Amino acid sequence: MSSAPGSYESGRERDRDEEGRARNQRPRDGLGRPLPYGADGVPRQPEGVVRAPEESVTEAQALLDAGRPFHAHEVFEDAWKSGPEPERGLWKGLAQLAVGLTHSARGNTTGGARLLLRGAGAISDWTTRTGRHRPYEIDVAELVTWAETLAERLEREGTAVDAVTSAPRLRGGALRG
């Protein structure tokens, strides 16, 4: 059975953004999981927003504190894609940490642990290479410790974590989780 371009076999039109690119517009929960059309979801994080680095860190922290690490990942991804080339590894690593927490809270503990360790390696490597240990006041060493500790716990216990109580403090302070 053939369907028209841009539509599904059910006849429903494919979701598209303002530029005509295919984009799933289903509502999402706080962990970024799609919900049925018509369900109440959390507000989506706008994509492609260029922010000052300090603003990215502040916004991502607010999302982490609210138990929305998937949405924090979107903020870090925007910084990674729009920031200067020398900083992209930092922002990519932070995005991996947020997605690792997302998977961990969703119950994918193996994938979560792997992403946490990958993100920790990326940000650790960035500071070693650049010699900057607190870029934008981010406590990189503490984040690496947080990620490694949470990954070890996930591997040992194999149970989902709470996204709020397990979220890190990006700018230092007491580690959570």
Rank of each mutant, 00 (worst) to 15 (best):
P27Y: 00
R118Q: 09
E59Y: 03
E148P: 03
L116N: 01
S82N: 10
L90V: 15
R153K: 13
E148H: 02
Q45P: 10
P46A: 12
D125K: 00
L150G: 08
R114S: 08
N24H: 12
K81L: 14
Y136L: 07
R118W: 04
D162M: 04
A120V: 07
K92M: 14
G121D: 11
E59Q: 10
R26C: 09
A39G: 05
R156N: 11
E55T: 14
D15I: 10
R153Y: 05
S2V: 12
L63S: 03
R28T: 15
D78T: 11
R88N: 14
L35K: 02
V42F: 11
G89Y: 10
A174R: 14
R176I: 06
R156V: 14
S3A: 14
E74C: 08
G112F: 00
G119S: 07
R132A: 06
V164M: 09
R156K: 15
S166K: 06
L101H: 01
V140T: 06
R106A: 07
E142P: 06
K92C: 12
R14V: 12
E55W: 02
G131A: 05
S7P: 04
L154K: 01
G41L: 06
G38M: 03
A52M: 08
T102K: 01
T102Y: 00
G119E: 02
V50M: 09
L31T: 07
E55R: 08
S104I: 00
G6A: 13
G100I: 04
H71T: 11
G11V: 12
L101K: 00
W80Y: 14
A79G: 03
E155A: 11
V57T: 06
H71D: 15
A60T: 03
G112D: 01
K92E: 14
E142A: 14
G20Q: 15
D65I: 03
G32E: 07
E85A: 15
A4L: 15
G67W: 01
D162H: 02
A141S: 04
A72P: 04
F76N: 01
G32D: 10
R153T: 15
D17S: 13
F76G: 04
A4H: 13
A160W: 04
P5M: 09
R16G: 11
